[in-house]
Structures are given as C-alpha cells and as structure tokens.
C-alpha cells in the first residue's frame, strides 16, 4: 500500500476517532452518539479537504 493511500486512510480514521470520542462525551444514547459522530466527521473531513485544496492552490500561485 502506497504512503499516499495510507495517509488518506489515516485522515479518515483519525478524524473518526476524534469525532467519536467527542460525541461519546456529549451523549448517553447510541443513536445520538452515532448521529453526532457522523456530523462531526463529515465536517472535520470536509474542513481538512478544504484546507488541503487551499494550501495546494496557494502553493501553485
């Protein structure tokens, strides 16, 4: 497996772990935890991809 693929999978996994730990601390029931995790995960990955695109564009100016 190439380093690039490992980095992308790591991005997805680590952002999921952070979202899950934060959601577990906030809620008691499983469904609200899963919903909050998915929301946070989507937001987190979206922001990271956005930053990545921004850095790429700024680096190619």
């Amino acid at each position: 497996m190439s380093l690039g693929i490992v980095n992308i999978l790591s991005l997805l996994y680590l952002s999921m772990v952070v979202a899950l730990v934060l959601s577990i601390s906030e809620h008691e029931e499983i469904r609200p935890i899963l919903r909050a995790t998915l929301r946070r995960w989507g937001l987190g990955v979206g922001l990271l991809i956005g930053f990545g695109i921004l850095v790429y564009l700024l680096g190619n100016l």
């Binding site: 380093l3 490992v6 680590l14 772990v17 952070v18």
Partner: peptide, 12 residues
C-alpha cells in the same frame, strides 16, 4: 518512512 505518521497516531 511511516514514523511521522505513526507519531501522529500517538499524538491523537
């Protein structure tokens, strides 16, 4: 090659 990435796992 994976050391920096691995450090990030430990950091998280």
């Amino acid at each position: 090659a994976y050391f920096d990435l691995a450090s990030f796992y430990l950091l998280v």
